[in-house]
Write a protein that binds this DNA or RNA. Structure first.
Lengths: 157, 157
DNA sequence: GCCTGAAGTTTTAGGCTTGAAATATCCGTC
DNA sequence: GACGGATATTTCAAGCCTAAAACTTCAGGC
């Protein structure tokens, strides 16, 4: 597999870019594997979806509500996307839109009482699913991974 | 933030499960950030999409073709999903379905000449985009991340 | 007050994705 | 060689997602 007769033995036989590509593929597969499992659990035990859970989670961390645009920025998805998910959460009675005084363009989205309770149930199970899927790592390894992955966000322009 | 007056100082003040949850969130954000950027580049420079690229990539690594079900397993997506993407790739002339002799249920998907050439162009740029997005890591850090993330796949039941 | 560009949100068209149902074929058993 | 369960793929309905266009409102400059 490795090209034979490397003329410069002090250099890695494999360029860094290949290694970076490999990391991206690993990241992709790790993400997909975990996400698929969480999606299934959420569907089976709560008849819900990951995007809805993500929105509820953001709202739970911001009890006084978030604007639509803040929501889409936090979740790193498009504005139009959030519109649809919040529509469904409102239809389910888990979230509500309230107008922002001083700016009639904007909307603040908040959890309802039901949404708060419902999310608490889901979040507890969600945490245990993640817990068991990532149980292979020691505390040190977790720290390493978190620190290294965090660097990707710092670098953002 | 940390609960004050920890009665058992030998224990970590934060349960491992919280740390695991944090890792999952980091992974999620890292993935989304990279994916969003790749999607944009692919759209702007090749008028294509990530799912199509992923299928082409799998086919490029398997020149004699893959069955629909092998394709969906490799990409970790549903069967029905692959059907639609391959439909579009066929319409674009980049892939083709050929029948498998000995089994009239199955289909083998292959790259066309055009698909092969087209993918080669895309792949070169794709690699350079990934290269620059992951340039923050040293060779050692890359190895660490790859090794640790690979463990998630080994553990799969 | 009125214009003009910017900001917040929704709408739209098209593609991606899933889970479940439908189709077609295979294969072992009788 | 007919039956019946398993396998490979497609179809379907519903939801997710994006980029771009459309709408509404805001904020300054005149």
């Amino acid at each position: 597999m490795t090209p034979s007769g490397d003329p410069q033995p002090h250099q890695s036989p494999e360029p860094l870019s290949k290694q970076r590509l490999r990391l991206w593929l690993r990241l992709l597969r790790a993400h997909r594997s975990i996400e698929n499992h969480l999606r299934e659990q959420l569907r089976l035990t709560h008849s819900s979806t990951l995007p809805r859970f993500d929105v509820l989670s953001a709202l739970d961390r911001n009890r006084d509500g978030l604007r639509m645009s803040e929501l889409s920025a936090r979740l790193m998805v498009s504005n139009g996307n959030v519109t649809g998910i919040v529509d469904r959460l409102e239809a389910e009675g888990l979230a509500q839109r309230v107008s922002v005084d001083g700016d009639r363009r904007a909307m603040r989205v908040r959890l309802t009482e039901d949404g708060l309770a419902r999310f608490a149930e889901m979040a507890a199970e969600h945490e245990s699913w993640v817990d068991s899927m990532l149980s292979t790592y020691t505390e040190t390894e977790l720290s390493t991974l978190i620190t290294l992955l965090a660097r990707l966000e710092e670098d953002e322009t």
